[in-house]
Design a protein around this nucleic acid. Structure first.
Lengths: 180, 180
DNA sequence: GACGCAGTAGACAGACCTGTCTATCAGCAA
DNA sequence: TTGCTGATAGACAGGTCTGTCTACTGCGTC
């Protein structure tokens, strides 16, 4: 359980829920488990979030915002490279357990939720924009880079191997062509 | 509901469950819904399957077997090509709605099930063997082909576009090198 | 002290879930 | 006819889920 005196109740709920959603799945994670692990009363949870779906959406939104920020904070040199999103994926992999793309996973469990669908689209728009600016708007290259990026996530989930991201980076360089 | 006089109860259950699992998700599909749609009594279902998990595993096993059969039945010319698995994916896409890789999806919803895990690994072994024989055992190429194959599935799910599979085939050709 | 605020604990309703069980029925074989 | 097989409908137990609600507590501010 996180330190109650430092981390706000809302953030404790969100941090706890995020870890559980990602590792065990959304439908396999009940409200009772979240509040127990976060050390929070049920009423507190429902004071901060209108529903479980809102927790899920906030969980996804925060990942997207952190991802956008990480891309922003790259130094100008790295920011031009098509490799940057892959490097971020590599960091995630090194940081601990990996269970695939949280956005794709959420869509599997909540295919009917428009709010989830919207978060997924916003996230993907972000990456596509990044790749587009890396290859000067060449849409064919953007599509292929997205495909390789998607492949890296699914491949790391299903066939965990140190080399997956490296393979993806090699392919990305090949697609982008010299000088990227 | 399928024709009761032609299709056996067991197959009706399996067909109905497969469609529901794939489209709406496993945890979102209750036993009651399956038996109602299949036009079958609950006892009949539990006479044919020991548990819901067994239905899930059978659902995955059947897809794997059909996939293996489809690869077998390719004419000798096509069987050498790295493109064959992608062509099968294209057929699936043309046949109707697409909700990603059923194996990956099942693993998201049932990460604790060893039986599901095993089915996923068997399925992936199948594809890797195919790619391996297409590129004469070059493991680096096999890894990249798997990555592109995974990418095609995730990309078609998240960014549906006619061109996804075409991009994947172009990449696969590039990876395999001339003459494949 | 009085008040409001944010939190706690936990009971509760109502829905849904899986899996078991009883009772019944139709068809077929001996 | 008798009995077996496989099916039916559906009640039921026991559990889990989300979300609401009551009652209480500690704390800072006026």
């Amino acid at each position: 359980m996180e330190n109650k005196s430092i981390v706000s109740a809302k953030n404790r709920i969100l941090n706890t829920a995020s870890a559980l959603f990602y590792k065990r799945g959304i439908n396999n994670t009940g409200i009772d488990r979240i509040i127990a692990d976060a050390g929070v009363a049920k009423a507190t949870m429902y004071n901060n979030f209108a529903s479980k779906e809102e927790i899920v959406v906030t969980y996804l939104r925060r990942i997207r915002e952190q991802f956008a920020e990480a891309l922003e904070q790259l130094d100008p040199e790295a920011k031009k490279s098509v490799e940057a999103p892959f490097s971020l994926l590599k960091l995630t992999l090194e940081n601990g357990e990996f269970y695939g793309c949280p956005f794709s996973n959420a869509l599997v469990e909540m295919p009917e939720s428009k709010a989830v669908r919207d978060e997924v689209d916003l996230y993907r728009g972000l990456i596509m924009n990044y790749f587009a600016s890396s290859v000067k708007g060449d849409q064919k290259k953007v599509s292929k880079l997205m495909l390789v990026y998607d492949g890296a996530f699914l491949n790391c989930k299903l066939s965990p191997s140190e080399a997956s991201v490296e393979s993806a980076i090699e392919l990305a360089r090949l697609i982008a062509g010299p000088g990227h």
